[in-house]
Design a protein around this nucleic acid. Structure first.
Lengths: 360, 360
DNA sequence: ACTATAATAGAGACCGGTCTCAATACCAAA
DNA sequence: TTTGGTATTGAGACCGGTCTCTATTATAGT
């Protein structure tokens, strides 16, 4: 009979006030640490609170103050190590400033993203960090802003949306990675990426709704045309969104008679599938196929050959996004800022000159 | 002058009611879809709501009803693929039932975990899913329950805490994995795990605060003693919590004169470090060193040799945890349930008989 | 001692929903 | 037309905090 399974109603300020024989307002002040309270009252109240095991109802506080101490985060896919690390960074930063984080997965679909924004807005988060699934459909983001909810874009820009962004220079990164391959005499270079697309093959930039992917392809094409490669777009493949389709796309690419001699993989999951496909087809990396991948996933340095990667500062990206957001929440009303972090091209063992040099 | 940057106060039921010329109560009923409203009033209200771009304040609703439609989740480390996948599973399940998820990282430290519980409770989540950092310190979990907040444990039990759990049979899984090595004639088998511990070496089960790890070590020892291995505990190593210390521990283990001929890695991150260390020391897997790892991380099937693993149904673990929790929230008051999912020992290429058979 | 000023206490409105309850409107049956 | 019953409506309390505003008390200054 020891109050087990009690589920007794938690104590409120009113309860504490009654127990301490002071007014609700006085108790609230003592508990909330605002206004002015005599030390005698404070003592009584704190003691009563302890006795009743009082815990403030954060919701009620939020209602009254308008501030929730929470930031909402919407990313594409938790299981992608890039986002895992970014979330880590942003949580760490948020925690430092006493904010906590509500996380939502958009599954890279705009409908889910829109719903998530609505939910988070309804929960009255103090700010929003979003990695938008598409750069086109941004009405929901715009009216978050219109409602006065600060917004920071993570990893992906949305042209025309005048908000803070934390990104890397994808175009430059892709250009450099491609140039590395070109310098090794590759002339048939593929770019495989995971973005929603009606068709697997590449027609024009407008086709691509993901800012990050579009920039990278621009960089890839830039390096390619600069080097005078013929039809540089012909080896671009979109839509490698999951293991199965990625595998199909890559296998198809590598079994063609004029198969590419090098592949740029747009993320570590795709790189993994390239590895798997090469193994399956008996293609030796880097002797018969060179590989450069985005994201320095932990396994890339351990496999043989170790994979040459474009390392992205994902943790910092998240951290900076949170930092900027919290600054905004603090009230700084300045021009939108673009926090552009540097990528690092880490040369390892997965690139070499193509077989049968000069052939194409 | 087009209401840009307006941050205008969002419309409330009262606003809508006024605009529709009905009482606040009537508008609330029309909007909330409860009580009874004439279709005439309903129409007027909905129209007014549309015009004013009304969005319900979820917080106010929660305050009034006591239900938040949110479940709180506390895990050890987002960056661990195991948890990434579990979170995915539990989010998917929650979404199906219209719940959303607040996620917190405990960093595997009890203090952070306690703080996280407090925050989530204060935010009045409808239920809690926790992967407790330790099985000892469970007061915070107990009083979540005492406050009437349903609780489900994910992946890790806490003996004495009578709540639903979604786990695997770690003891059995570890026993089977160890036996696989024993059958291949290994007699010096190491177990490397990432749990907080004062000392790296193993003394007794009491030393280990993580339910999962303790069970696995029990299984490991069980198989070892059954096979009559001498001092089976001498190759157990604790505290491999991050890359650096894991690397140190493994290197130390493998450079000893009577080094183990096989290693069981308690998670994929450790397996990766074993891989790295073996490469560094010039030890060939599996010829000179066999490896079995927990968790079927994506890279394990791609590296050479592919790693033999104990695959855990992490997605389902998360999904089931959420399913049970939501059932509890629904009000079913039954005995605590233990949902025990099966692991799968996937034999690949990283195990073989030890070199110089018979030596020890 | 007697005001001027500051510190503290209490009452009650407010945030934006839900929900109870009493009052009114509407309908069919008698 | 009167009655009984149901559908709809509006007023206002409530959730648990914050916060403003007034009343009271304490402290200081001359």
């Amino acid at each position: 009979m020891h109050e087990r399974f009690a589920a007794k109603r938690p104590a409120t300020v009113a309860d504490v006030a009654a127990a301490a024989n002071v007014s609700k307002a006085a108790a609230a002040r003592a508990l909330g640490g605002y206004g002015s309270v005599s030390s005698a009252v404070k003592l009584k109240v704190l003691e009563a609170a302890r006795r009743l095991d009082y815990r403030p109802n954060e919701l009620a506080r939020t209602m009254a103050t308008g501030r929730s101490g929470t930031i909402g985060v919407i990313i594409g896919d938790i299981e992608n190590p890039f986002f895992g690390s970014a979330v880590r960074g942003l949580s760490d930063c948020a925690a430092q400033s006493g904010f906590d984080v509500i996380l939502s997965n958009s599954d890279e679909t705009i409908a889910t993203e829109r719903a998530a924004v609505a939910v988070l807005l309804a929960k009255r988060v103090d700010g929003l960090i979003v990695a938008p699934a598409t750069m086109h459909d941004k009405a929901h983001l715009e009216d978050a802003r219109a409602q006065g909810c600060p917004l920071v874009l993570l990893d992906r820009e949305a042209p025309g949306l005048l908000v803070d962004v934390a990104i890397v220079n994808n175009q430059e990164a892709a250009r450099d990675a491609t140039q590395l391959l070109i310098l090794a005499d590759h002339r048939r270079i593929a770019y495989v990426t995971a973005t929603a697309a009606a068709d697997v093959s590449y027609e024009s930039p407008e086709q691509i709704a993901l800012a990050t992917v579009r920039s990278r392809i621009t960089g890839f094409l830039e390096a390619s045309t600069l080097a005078g490669l013929p039809e540089p777009g012909r080896y671009i493949r979109l839509g490698a969104n999951n293991t199965a389709t990625a595998q199909a796309i890559i296998a198809d690419l590598l079994s063609a008679p004029d198969r590419p001699t090098a592949i740029v993989a747009s993320d570590s999951k795709i790189a993994l599938e390239v590895f798997r496909a090469a193994k399956g087809l008996g293609l030796a990396i880097p002797r018969q196929l060179s590989l450069v991948a985005f994201d320095d996933a932990d396994w890339t340095s351990v496999v043989s050959p170790a994979v040459t990667v474009v390392a992205q500062p994902s943790y910092q990206l998240g951290f900076e996004a949170a930092r900027m957001l919290i600054e905004r929440i603090g009230g700084t009303r300045t021009e939108p800022r673009r926090c552009i972090l540097a990528t690092t091209l880490i040369k390892r063992e997965s690139t070499a000159s193509p077989p049968m040099r000069g052939d194409f």
